[in-house]
Simulated assay, not measured.
Amino acid sequence: MAMGRDSQKRRTRKALVEAAGRLIAEGRRPSVAEVADAADISRRTAYRYFPSAEQLSVEAALEATRQNMELSIEAGPIDEPVSDRVARLVDALSQMTLDNEMLLRQMIRFTIDRDAIEPGVPPRPSRRLEYVERALTPLQGTLDQDELDRLTHALTVVIGIESTIVLRDICGLDSAEILRVQQWAAQALVTAAGGGARRRKIP
């Protein structure tokens, strides 16, 4: 039952973001109320997920990158090692982060002080988690669920905007060095979990 509620909450958030994207594509700057109406979701619910139109617009812009991310993850042969899928995920997410770094920093600013919207609904969307889950799909049934969950969660830590901020702002690395570190960390986790069919050489 809890899983069903979580899925519904994801669908609600996605419906709001997609409605915002459609309105923005029409050249409008919609309010949260206008997006709620377009998504056929109550305004009260919409404001729980997105307190400001600015935050909703940022999310809509970032959601527009989803298709390219998913295509990148699935671009290899059907029997490829999971390590190759993860490598493509890291490459694609690194490029997306580089292209949208200011938007992603804004997203952090909007959500860093927010509590969960409600139990089971974190203040930020789960795109990165969904991308990692997709990349690790071949490991379902190979690792037990606890191990797979641990690997999934660990990978979300070492890639994406927060990792990039630490490596750039604190470690002083440039974009190429950031990608090398993120690839190394991701592959180390896959290998430690037993999900790498062969050891990848990080360029």
Rank of each mutant, 00 (worst) to 15 (best):
R11F: 01
A46L: 02
A193H: 00
L129A: 08
R11Y: 02
L143V: 07
E162C: 06
R180Y: 00
Y47S: 10
I165Q: 00
Q95E: 08
A188K: 05
A185E: 14
R11Q: 13
R28D: 10
M69Q: 09
G196T: 02
Y131E: 07
S57N: 07
R180N: 07
I170Q: 11
T137F: 00
V17I: 15
R88K: 06
E162P: 01
D91R: 11
E54C: 02
R88S: 01
Q187H: 13
P30L: 09
R199M: 04
E34G: 04
P77T: 11
E133T: 12
E63Q: 14
D144R: 11
D169E: 14
D6K: 08
E80P: 01
N68G: 07
S52M: 09
A197G: 12
A154F: 07
L103G: 01
I170A: 14
V121C: 07
L143W: 00
V157K: 06
A20V: 10
D6E: 11
D144I: 08
M96K: 05
D37P: 00
A39T: 08
E162R: 14
Q55N: 05
R28I: 08
S126E: 14
R127N: 04
D99N: 01
M102C: 02
K14M: 13
G196I: 00
A116C: 07
Q187F: 06
R168T: 03
L136S: 07
A38S: 09
D146V: 10
M3L: 12
Q55S: 08
R109C: 05
Q67A: 03
E147S: 14
M1Q: 05
S72F: 01
A75G: 03
A197E: 04
D149Y: 06
L179P: 01
P119C: 00
A15T: 13
I41D: 05
L23Q: 10
A36Y: 13
A36G: 04
V132A: 04
E59T: 10
E74T: 11
R29T: 15
Y49S: 08
A60L: 08
L56W: 09
L89W: 13
L173Q: 03
A87M: 07
L143Q: 02
L155G: 04
R29M: 06
A53M: 04
G4P: 05
C171A: 14
R66P: 02
Q145R: 12
A38R: 10
A20S: 12
R88D: 05
E63L: 08
Q183T: 01
E63G: 05
L93V: 13
Q8W: 13
I161F: 06
P81N: 03
T191N: 04
D91K: 06
D6Y: 15
